[in-house]
Design a binder for these strands. Structure first.
Length: 152
DNA sequence: GCCAACGTTGGC
DNA sequence: GCCAACGTTGGC
């Protein structure tokens, strides 16, 4: 099973939203970057995903979620009122994808970005590469275990 | 708020 | 196809 990491501002959708959704899935929509979209499309049911909090007071990995529904056309691209509306996309040829995610567990403590940067063996992690703005990215098995082991 | 890095757009 | 201008991301 593949492993992934998704970024989100907790004010938009963070680990607390998953905790409060009580096992219900949350649509992961609004991704409007082609590289991120391509990774979304590769997600399969049962894949595990790190949830990363960005642009906030406590930046870092906050929890683990899982893919409960693989990629489907992101409905927000067809909604004129949505901030994610894309007039160039059509239902016949949808441009953007979404997946459904649900909580696995909130980490006992958030792993701060600074700490991730200090961990040996994470040099390949796209998250830590300079200038990386990718919001959906694969995580290697090795990196996954390093991070999860560190989370305790 | 600042600013570096990046992605996208659009004129040519 | 090139590339400058612009908008966005995201850490600090």
């Amino acid at each position: 099973m593949a492993k992934w990491l998704v970024k989100s501002e907790p004010s938009e959708c963070g680990i607390e939203d998953f905790v409060q959704s009580a096992g219900q899935s949350i649509p992961w929509d609004g991704v409007r970057n082609y590289q991120a979209r391509n990774f979304l499309a590769q997600m399969s049911e049962g894949d595990d995903v790190f949830l990363y909090h960005s642009s906030c007071a406590q930046i870092g990995i906050a929890g683990i979620v899982t893919v409960v529904n693989g990629a489907y056309p992101d409905p927000t691209q067809f909604q004129p009122d949505s901030p994610y509306f894309d007039p160039k996309s059509t239902p016949e040829k949808p441009r953007w994808q979404a997946v459904d995610l649900a909580l696995v567990r909130k980490l006992p403590r958030l792993i701060p970005l600074k700490e991730l940067k200090s961990l040996p063996g994470l040099e390949e992690l796209a998250l830590l590469r300079k200038g990386s703005r990718l919001s959906v990215m694969p995580v290697g098995e090795k990196e996954w275990h390093i991070i999860q082991g560190h989370a305790g």
